[in-house]
Computed example of a mutant assay.
Amino acid sequence: MGITISETAAREISTIIDQQELDRQKVRLRVGVKGGGCSGFSYLLDLTETARDADEEFDQHGIKVVCDPKSYLYLNGVSIDFKDEVMGRGFVFNNPNATSSCGCGSSFSA
């Protein structure tokens, strides 16, 4: 299954890479989880040039995605989209592994 990024999310990530003048050949989107948030875990998105040997790696719409093995246990099958709506703007996670998530959508429990 892996981690899926929508075309809309990939365009937004591309825009951020360009705005920050990062090297497209080296930069990767690190997707992960960390303890905390209202539901137990919070999602983590970061642009990095570092990929570790143990990382899972994916290529989605020209974006290189990396995820550490521990986070991947919670994120295998997740899809990431980007919404730009009247009520807010940001990345949206659809995680089939989450047993519940908070109202803001930035944390979950599994």
Results as ranks from 00 to 15, higher is better:
73 L>I: 11
71 S>E: 09
6 S>P: 06
102 C>V: 09
44 L>I: 13
11 R>C: 03
95 N>W: 07
3 I>L: 04
40 G>A: 10
17 I>G: 06
42 S>C: 08
102 C>H: 02
32 G>S: 13
51 A>Y: 01
58 F>Q: 02
50 T>S: 10
83 K>I: 13
90 G>I: 08
43 Y>G: 05
73 L>H: 12
100 S>P: 01
74 Y>L: 14
55 D>F: 05
21 E>Q: 06
90 G>E: 09
44 L>A: 05
62 G>K: 03
17 I>L: 08
81 D>Y: 06
85 E>H: 13
89 R>D: 12
23 D>G: 03
70 K>C: 03
54 A>M: 06
51 A>H: 04
35 G>S: 14
99 T>S: 14
71 S>V: 05
38 C>V: 12
59 D>N: 03
26 K>V: 01
101 S>H: 09
33 V>A: 15
25 Q>M: 04
110 A>I: 05
96 P>N: 15
105 G>E: 12
71 S>Y: 02
75 L>S: 01
20 Q>N: 06
10 A>L: 02
11 R>D: 09
14 S>T: 06
106 S>F: 08
43 Y>R: 11
39 S>G: 06
105 G>S: 14
32 G>P: 12
81 D>C: 10
102 C>K: 03
108 F>W: 02
42 S>K: 10
18 D>C: 02
38 C>Y: 11
68 D>S: 10
48 T>P: 07
36 G>C: 12
67 C>V: 04
30 R>I: 01
